[in-house]
Design a protein around this nucleic acid. Structure first.
Lengths: 195, 195
DNA sequence: CCTTCGCTAGAACGCTCTCTCTAGAGAGAC
DNA sequence: GTCTCTCTAGAGAGAGCGTTCTAGCGAAGG
């Protein structure tokens, strides 16, 4: 793998685990096994630009998990519940590391690093776009799909946060149950969001 | 107000806005208008101990909002939906600052500051405890209440995160709608979680 | 062969960080 | 008064930060 990619991947991993401010260039140098000079050669914007690249790359990768996890289930609600449980178990099995650098970073830099916050917003917006397109494909009306994907993404990021603090899969199980019930209620007796 | 309290409050505010790693002692000194010496006099553990106190204090304060926001509504689901919308509007009106230091901090320090992570876990556990007690008081069975409060807290923290990145109230509206539908489904036709 | 150029390499700079240390102000006990 | 003790006050140490800079390696082109 080339150096540039190693740098981005190492940065993504560090952001995921400890956020932006706590991640130093020296640490990145060690993790990516690349000299300081190379980092500034490939990313003239320095630490900030490497972080932006890492957020974009992992953001694009993560949303592809949506169809991967939900396609196998004919019933959307069942698939969602299973996906949340799976995410929780994976988190537990990897020592409660947060699985989403975008989530880890957004909170801490939103008011101190405007450029990075915009990158995070861009990534999240693309999640909403692609996610709601997928849900439309699964039979939800456009407006409903947008609302559901917002709720799903929020519940997922929130579950990561709680699980990371509590070191328990319970937030994932509960979130999956709630989102499944919500989605079920949409196609059930009342279709109030459809209008 | 005495110095010790000023320090804790200033730290809570800084954590809320920019997280733990990005918050420096000098910044805290300026914000709390207290000399460096005083900080280390009151908190021998330094920055870490101040942060722990701030997390505990705001954690205790925040859970008290639950009855405050939900008591006025006879229907639990309606109250939840309204509370989410209100939280979103307040966040928008305060310039999209995250309203929860615990959430802002947990992700970034979970793997680098074990002592603080434990404090965050303590705070979150007390939220679950007090929150589920409240929901039991509102008529939910014990096990259901625990699951619901996990889902609610997760959805709330997740909505903060998304809203902070996207600078939009849409995550709050969507989360409120989803959680309301979930709670309604519990007392509706099917009581599957009750067993 | 030699030149060019993308990239590696890491020393060094100026700055900021957390924390320690010494000095003294101010209130209360006697 | 004066002794005591809590707390204020901020300069300074030592480490680490992000970034810049110069030097040179090694493959491609002529």
């Amino acid at each position: 793998m080339d150096t540039e990619n190693r740098i981005v991947l190492a940065m993504a991993e560090l952001l995921r685990v400890q956020g932006y401010a706590a991640t130093g260039i020296n640490q990145l140098v060690r993790a990516a096994d690349a000299p300081t000079g190379s980092i500034y050669h490939h990313f003239k914007g320095g630490k900030r630009e490497v972080a932006a690249a890492a957020l974009r790359q992992t953001g694009a990768a993560y949303i592809q998990l949506l169809p991967l996890l939900l396609d196998p289930h004919e019933d959307l609600a069942t698939g969602i519940e299973a996906a949340f449980v799976a995410a929780g178990e994976q988190m537990r099995d990897t020592g409660w590391m947060n699985m989403c650098p975008v989530g880890t970073v957004t909170a801490e830099i939103a008011d101190t690093e405007p450029a990075l916050r915009e990158v995070a917003a861009e990534v999240m917006a693309s999640w909403v776009e692609q996610g709601s397109a997928y849900l439309v494909g699964r039979g939800l009306p456009e407006a409903t799909a947008r609302s559901v994907i917002h709720a799903l993404l929020g519940a997922l990021e929130g579950a990561f946060l709680l699980a990371r603090g509590l070191r328990s899969v319970e937030p994932f199980v509960a979130a999956g149950r709630a989102q499944a019930a919500y989605v079920t209620s949409l196609s059930g007796s009342s279709r109030q969001v459809l209008a």
